[in-house]
Each structure stands twice: as C-alpha cells, then as structure tokens.
Design a protein around this nucleic acid. Structure first.
Length: 935
RNA sequence: GGGUGGUUAGCUCAGUUGGUUGAGAGCGUCUGGUUUACACCCAGAAGGUCACAGGUUCGACUCCUGUACCACCCACCA
C-alpha cells in the first residue's frame, strides 16, 4: 500500500537513476524519426543552480518530454559555459581572500592561474550537473559539452579564421575607442554596459577668451572637464549663429597646469544648440561620439588626439600639471585652476547617464585601444543562394523578418530589430586569461610594424603587427618565413559570447573528427552525424534578458559559419521575482528562493508547476513559498486519487497489472459517469496536445490541474465510491499521468509503476495519448454535470438555510426530461448531500410550507425544511433573485428588440440570446409563483 | 529622447481570433464538516462599474486613440 502522502525526497533521485539507466535521455543520430532538439543554455561553470536555471530546465524538460512521447527523436543537449570574465574574477577574488595574495595574476602568471581556474571550474561543473538532475531534466548526458572542450575550441578557431580571411574581412584588428573596465582591466562590449542616471556636476567655463573670439568669450559645458586636456576641437551646430564666425578657425588654448592644446572650431549637426552653451569640446580618445565626430572632420586639421587617461584610471604622466593623478583628483585640480584664473562660469547639478560595467558594476572609461572586432556592416556573405552579398547585420534581420526564426512572444521581434539598428562592430578581444585565446600568431622573426594604421598616422607610438598566422593551433606556422617555433600567440582571449554564439552547432561536432586537423570546417560539419541530424535545433528557450547577448549572437555566428539558422523558435521566459516584485539578488540571499532548498521540502514537481502555471512568456512573475506549497498539494492530490483507485482495485481483487492498456468495452455497456469521464478525457487529450504544440504551457497546466482536482477527484471519484468496476477509472488515470508527465515527471513515473499494465516500460518512453473520437459523447457529460450541479445545489441550500450537516432531509428534484439516471444514483445523493430520501419527479411539485428551491438549468431542486427554515429569509432571497433576474432579462430584451442587433449579429448569437430570454422567463415565473405562495 | 510591457476579487495572476449560462483560478477571508484516498482534505459563501477618457461596433476586459501611474529595455544632450 502506498503511503498517505507523496514523498518526493524518497522518490525523485531513485526515479532519475531509473530514467538515466534506461537510456531514455539518449538521442539517436541514425534514427529516421523527426528530430526535436533543444540546446540547453549552458549555466556558468562557476555557479550554483538558481531559480533562473530552474525555470529554464522546467520549460525545456516539458518541451522535450512531450516531443519524446510524441515519437520524435528528442535531443536535449546539456553543458556548461566557461563564462570568461565572470569566472576569472570569481576565482581571482577567491584567491585574494583565501590565499591573501594581492595580485594573483602577477603572482601566479598566466599558465598557473589558468590551471587554478580550471581546477575550480571542474569542481563546480560537477555541482551543476547534480543540480540539473535534481530538477528532473531529461537531457542527454552522453553528449554533455563544455565551451572549452577541444572540439568547441576548434570551432572557435575555425570561425575566427574564416571571418578573418573573408573578403572583405569580417574580423579585423583596429585602434579605436572602446569600453574599458578599469576594475577588471579589460575591454567590454557595448552590451555589457548598463546606463544609470547619476547625479553629476556640469561645469561651464571659458574655453576661448574674448580676445580670441573677437567678441564674447566662448564657454563650454561639460561634466568631465579633465578630458578637455585631450581636446582637438570645439564643435557647434552648423546653423548656430552665435558661433558662425569662428567655424574653421584654429586657436591655441592654454589650460591651468601648463598644457597648451590646439583646437579648431568645427560645425556638426549632432551638436544640440540648446544644451549647455551649444559648444562642445571634442575629445576623440575618450569618447566614441567624439571619435566619430572627429573622424568626420579631421581632414581640416592635422592635430593629433592624445590619450589623457590610462588603463588604470590615472592621468598620463606626460600631461603637464596632472600626470599621475587619479581622474577625480585631476578634475578637482583642473576646476580649481580654472576658478583661480577666473574662467569658471558656473557649476550646476544635473542628472547624467553614466556607463557602468555589467560585470564589475564600476564606471566604464572610454579609451583608445588596439583590439579585435567583428565587422557587422561589410557585405561579404552570400545567404541562402541570394544574388547580393549581405552583411552579418542584414542576415540577422533577414532570418527574423522571413520568420525562418520566430520569437515567442512576438513583440520581442521589434526589440530585436531595434537592437540591430543600433548595432556597431563587436569588440571581441578581452584582456583576461580565462577563455579561448585569440587564434592569431605573430612571428617573432619577421614581425614587422605595419604601416599607416589610424593610430600611427596620428603619431601615436603603437606596435600594430598583423598576425602571420590565424587559425587552428595545430597548423600554426608563419606564412611569411615558414618558421614554426618562433610564433607567439596573441595574448588576449575572446569575448565569452563568441564561443557561446556557436553553441547550438559546435556541440554537435563529432569530437573525434575534430581532432583531425586535415579536415576543413566544411568537412567536419558534413561528417558529424549529430550536426547533420540535429541542426537547426527546434526551440531556443531562455530568459529575455539575454536576447541580445546570446540569442542574437547565436543567430549571427551560426548563420555565418554554417549557412543555417541555429533554431526555429525562440521562447523567451520572464524573470523570477520575489513576492514584492523585486529582483532576486545574489548579494541579498534573504530575497532569494533557493531551488535546492525547495526541492527537498516540496519536491521538484511542485517547484516546476509553480513556475509554469500562471506565467506567460516574456513577462516576469513572482514566486513565493505558498505558491509552491499549493502545487505540492496538487501533486499530493493526484497521489491520493491514484491511491484511492488502487484501493478500489484491491477491494475488487483485481490487479492493475492485469488490466490491459487497450480498453475495448463499448460505450453502450458503460455507466453514464464512466462515459462522461471518458468523453471529457478525450477533449482534455486534444486540448493538452494542441496547447503544448503551441507552447501554451500555462493554460494547459491549468486545464490539467482543474481536470484532475475538480472533475476527476471531486466529481467523478466522489461519485464512484462503492462502484465496483474500476477499469474505466484506471484507464483514465493512466491517461492522466501520461498527460501530466511532462509537467511533473517524478510523481507520474512513480504512479505509473503502480498502475501500468503488465509488461509496460517506463512512462518517460510511453507514447503520447491519442484522441479516441468514438468516446466523445456530450450527452453523458451533460447528464453527469447536471448530477453534480444538483448535489451542489442541495448543499448550497442547506448552508444558506443553516441546516446542520448531520440532519438528514428529504429532497425533491424536478427534472425537465424524465430520466432514470438521477434515480439510479440516488444512493450517492444520500451520501454526498446528506439526503434521507430522494424523489425525482417529471412535474413541478406543488408548493409546500417550508419548501426552499433552487432553479437550475435542466432541473429544479426542492428541499422541505419545515420547521427549520425562516420564511422571511426565503422570501427575501427570492426577491433578491427576482431583482437580479429581471435586470438581466431587461438587458436581453433590449438586445432582442434592437433591430440592428437582429440584423447584424450572427444567427447563432441571436439564437442563444433568445434561449437566454426563454430560460430566464421560465425561471422568473417559478420565482414569482413561489413568492405568491409565500405571500 | 525612443521603445516595450503592466494596470482584472484583499494578494498573486489567467483570460489567442469582440457575443457558447449574466467576468475566471490559486492563495487569503468567512461559515460548516473526524463522509474509512487525501486536513497537503471536503462542502458552501462573500468579494470585481476588468486604471481613466474618448472612438469603432448591433455588441468591447478583448480592437483603435489619448491620459495617468508602475516596471523594464534601448539611446551619440557633451
């Protein structure tokens, strides 16, 4: 006998082992079945499983189990991400704290530090694996991948090389202003910047004196006066009359501290004449905007921009008066100098958008640096046999526009397009050590400094070597001098999203084949069975917060490298929030719900349901313990319903195993409740199947919940007590656990082991239920519903008039059509509604003193409560009911007397309105008659 | 500055092609229950002018426009 309450703790791990050992998770690349594929978004290799992962795992497991049961070749490929900057900074902090080493990079050196990080990652990957299992994720562990696997690294190198060798080049090395994280000492991409409103001071000061301008002095407003030490120009709006006479002129400007710069006044329409003084200093090396502005105008002047701020956030030692100061120190000293010289006009507070690093949460400096970039605008690629070459940006737009890839919910397509519109070349090199090292080698022997980069042209001393070899390490050899031993690899690593962008297909490369460096990338793809069978993947499911970071990058990298889309559908889930609607933050553990604490307490099944039902894609949702407890209760309800059916089997001395899967008893031999059950079950199968196909997970979950609890347990099973034939309810239960299996796999698998027919395998491998059309019959369903409604009406009347629950009373039910059905179930009435006598009559009974009634559709229920009932209350209730009904009827009448409604509304709508009127009037007549009798 | 989403019962949220019983669920509240599957339960009840204002329509929670508040995303006003 099963225990009274379901015990997830004692069940889940055991079931998971059964699944895993059964091979049910493993996909077969040789299969002829239609593939259904999900690449699991790889959790960071550092972390713990959190609720974001839990949502992702729950959703994807539902998709994959449904597909598997539907007979598709289901592959869910798991893995982990090396998470470059995130991991390196975690480990560095750890070393600083635990080993008291101030600068672990300097202390250990590259090789040793990378090794230490790798060791750390290896441990936490094991943790992640076990945590993913806890959620019940049915992924194919035999195909587990890691972004730093050799075969994935090969793909990274191959794609880098391919892009570099494209004509025109899609990967290039350039000296440009980039985002510099001074805390982490690395560049970051545009997407890794957060914009925050920040209170700042806007300083307005005299830039050109009245002597220089020949009139009013020229003032400039800025929040970063220290950068003015590196200005090369003053920009004004072309139609700004205040400055027309100065445009094109060149002036020397001497700053406090001794530095003199030379600036030219230029006119450009990006300048907003209404902000500040309408004149803005142009600092090409500390602002991307200024850099672009200066590039448009630099032909008029040969002044070279200079770098004022170093990588450490200090002022360059060559800057007169401020060398070595920090930025805030310099700002203060510079402003003080201006003040002393009487050049400071005003200081105002204002809200300034500040760039913060997504990684370190520290302000980002814009600095000029020599970095690697992916060019998103060069038209270099032929997409799908098109005639015109397209840019990466254009392909990214095209695949969404053509709906080769669809995004759920659809509104994110607009967001995606807007992001692409603003997309600029992607800086992919990082000055950290953990990750895929840039696959470019410089020959020490023939290394030359190449000509005319932008930087050298500006007189900045920079080594700007062009790599002698780009590609995969095994083949590295200088293409110029043929030297093999004297090659030095670029010291930078690649942005973590570069490799993540390849995830959907680099994971499908055959690792053994990837070792053969004689194969080209093309051959590798062609010869890898998984790649051939499983790309494109079916659905990419992830949080909307990484639409740009990851989803967009996968589209970019995959379309380019393979000529295919990475996935057909993108399903974006919302973010989990606290009860108060706040973000759960790692820094404040009290706000977090930890799935690893929830699972032992409530079970993974309950957690899964609580994150799926009631949520819609793309919208955030709140999760709190009571919600999870509610679904734990549901799981337990299902458990007990099954236990009950099993007990009935036992009583009937029938083993469930002996009842075959096929159920062939014709409808005509079944009772009305059994027919009603089978009929509504078919409609449930249909709704669930269609709903899951359309990714309407919440709606389907609700339907299953309501069917099990309301219809099956509270309706059907309650009524079935004492009925001997268990075969129909067992069949129904079997279907129910099939339908629920994707949502709550553990409890359903456990129940299946009890209720399955002899010889059945695991539920995970069972075929999905099909709709049995011949079982659909609405007549029994209607009858059954009436029965439930009548019982409910009796109970309602009893409560309303305060009949004690133990007091048995007689009931008369007046049914419109004479049918022995209700009478046949009289003993259940007696039990469920506490009735001592039931009379079913074809004619309305005469009113008796103390009679209370409820008029239902299809039946009227009368109780004789002589001596119990308060007549005044009966009368009052009837009057309230009459008033409501009259109000309703007047609305219906108004509709029906509206000519336009009669003309234009659909006939069936008119018909239902007429029916409403007829039913309502009949009911009204009954109420009035009763009121007359009471008068 | 541009964009997106939200505003439905005390709380958390569903509501997919505008009319199929006069607006739904869970939790909470109230009333009554040791009905031998389940108190992680059963029965019943109260509670909403579907943010506001217009418009389209015979008919709008559902479509359109505008307003307010909240949240989020993007952004070259230094």
């Amino acid at each position: 006998m099963l225990p009274k309450a379901y015990d997830p703790k004692g069940t889940e791990d055991r079931i998971y082992v059964l699944w895993e050992e059964s091979g049910a998770f493993m996909a077969d690349a040789q299969s002829k079945k239609e593939p259904f594929v999900i690449s699991m978004p790889p959790p960071n290799a550092t972390g713990q499983l959190h609720l974001g992962h839990a949502v992702m795992l729950a959703l994807e497991d539902i998709f994959i189990r449904f597909a598997r049961m539907q007979g598709k070749e289901a592959l869910w490929l798991p893995g982990t991400d090396h998470a470059a900057i995130a991991t390196e900074s975690v480990v560095i902090k750890k070393i600083q704290k635990e080993e008291k080493i101030k600068d672990p990079r300097a202390h250990y050196g590259r090789e040793k530090l990378v090794q230490k990080i790798a060791e750390f990652v290896e441990q936490s990957r094991a943790t992640i694996r076990s945590q993913v299992r806890k959620m019940g994720a049915s992924c194919d562990w035999s195909r587990e991948r890691y972004t730093l696997d050799a075969s994935l690294n090969r793909c990274v190198n191959e794609v880098f090389k391919k892009m570099y060798e494209e004509d025109p080049k899609l990967i290039y090395r350039g000296f440009r202003v980039v985002n510099w994280d001074t805390a982490l000492q690395t560049t970051i991409s545009d997407d890794e910047i957060e914009h925050e409103e920040h209170e700042a001071v806007l300083y307005t000061f005299e830039y050109l004196s009245s002597r220089q301008t020949g009139g009013e002095p020229l003032y400039v407003a800025t929040s970063r006066p220290e950068t003015k030490l590196g200005d090369v120009a003053i920009a004004v709006h072309p139609s700004d009359e205040r400055y027309q006479h100065l445009v094109g002129k060149k002036f020397p400007v001497r700053w406090p501290g001794g530095r003199t710069i030379s600036i030219t006044v230029i006119a450009d329409s990006v300048v907003d004449p209404s902000f500040g003084t309408g004149a803005v200093g142009v600092t090409p090396f500390h602002s991307k905007i200024d850099e672009a502005l200066w590039n448009r105008h630099k032909s008029i002047d040969s002044t070279e921009p200079i770098q004022v701020i170093t990588e450490n956030g200090k002022i360059f030692h060559t800057i007169e008066g401020y060398g070595g100061m920090t930025v805030p120190e310099c700002r203060e000293a510079f402003v003080e100098g201006l003040r002393k010289e009487g050049r400071l006009l005003k200081e105002e507070k204002y809200m300034q958008p500040l760039s913060i690093s997504y990684r370190s949460k520290k302000p980002v400096e814009e600095l000029p640096k020599l970095q690697w970039f992916i060019d998103v605008n060069k038209e270099a690629i032929v997409w799908r046999g098109g005639k015109k070459k397209m840019s990466l940006k254009q392909i990214m737009q095209e695949v969404i526009r053509s709906h080769d890839i669809s995004i759920i919910p659809g509104r994110f397509e607009k967001t995606y397009f807007q992001w692409i519109d603003h997309l600029q070349d992607w800086c992919i090199s990082r000055q950290i050590w953990w990750g895929h090292r840039v696959p470019a080698w410089y020959c020490k022997k023939c290394n030359k400094i190449f000509q005319a980069t932008d930087a050298t042209a500006r007189g900045v001393s920079l080594k700007h070597p062009v790599p002698d070899y780009v590609g995969i390490p095994e083949l590295k050899k200088c293409q110029n001098c043929g030297e093999k031993n004297d090659l030095e690899q670029d010291s930078d690593t690649l942005d973590t999203w570069f490799s993540s962008g390849l995830w959907t297909w680099s994971t499908l490369i055959d690792p053994a084949l990837a070792e053969d460096t004689s194969l080209s990338l093309q051959d590798l793809l062609k010869k890898s069975p998984d790649f051939q069978k499983f790309l494109p993947t079916s659905v990419m499911e992830t949080g909307y917060d990484i639409l740009f970071f990851w989803v967009a990058r996968m589209i970019l990298m995959t379309t380019y490298a393979t000529g295919q889309i990475p996935f057909k559908h993108v399903y974006l889930h919302g973010l989990v929030r606290t009860r108060d609607g706040k973000k759960m933050s790692k820094s404040d553990p009290s706000t977090c719900i930890d799935p690893l604490e929830i699972i032992p307490k409530y079970g993974a099944d309950a957690l899964r349901l609580s994150m799926i039902v009631g949520q819609s894609p793309g919208n955030d949702f709140r999760l709190y313990e009571e919600k999870i407890a509610g679904y734990r209760n549901f799981i337990n309800k299902l458990w007990n319903a099954s236990r009950f059916v099993l007990m009935q089997c036992e009583k009937a001395e029938i083993s469930p195993k002996a009842i075959p899967a096929e159920f062939s008893t014709p409808n005509s031999q079944l009772s009305t409740p059994d027919r009603a059950l089978l009929s509504s079950l078919q409609r449930l199968v249909e709704n669930v199947t269609e709903g899951l196909k359309a990714y309407r997970l919440s709606e389907v979950g609700e339907q299953l919940y309501s069917f099990v609890w309301d219809f099956f347990c509270n309706g059907y099973l309650e009524l079935s007590k004492g009925e001997v034939d268990v075969s129909v309810r067992l069949k129904a239960l079997r279907t129910i656990v099939h339908l629920l299996h994707p949502y709550c796999p553990f409890v359903t698998e456990e129940l299946w082991s009890q209720i399955a027919p002899e010889g059945a395998g695991l539920l995970i491998k069972e075929p999905w239920p099909v709709v049995e059309e011949d079982r659909i019959d609405l007549v029994p369903e209607k009858k059954f519903e009436l029965l439930i409604n009548v019982i409910s009406a009796i109970q309602s009347l009893r409560m309303e008039y305060g009949v004690p629950s133990k007091t048995k009373i007689p009931a008369i039910v007046h049914v419109a059509e004479s049918d022995s059905f209700l009478l046949a179930y009289s003993q259940h009435f007696l039990r469920l509604a506490n009735i001592d006598h039931l009379e079913v009559v074809p004619k309305a009974p005469a009113h008796k003193h103390g009679m209370v009634s409820m008029f239902l559709k299809g039946a009227d229920v009368h109780l004789s409560l002589e001596g119990v009932v308060d007549l005044a209350k009966v009368k009052q209730n009837l009057e309230v009911e009459r008033a409501q009904l009259e109000k309703f009827l007047s609305g219906v009448r108004a509709k029906l007397s509206n000519e336009q409604f009669m003309e234009r509304a659909k006939p069936e709508v008119v018909e239902t309105e007429k029916q409403k009127l007829a039913d309502g009037e009949a009911k009204l007549a009954k109420i009035e008659e009763r009121l007359r009798a009471l008068a």
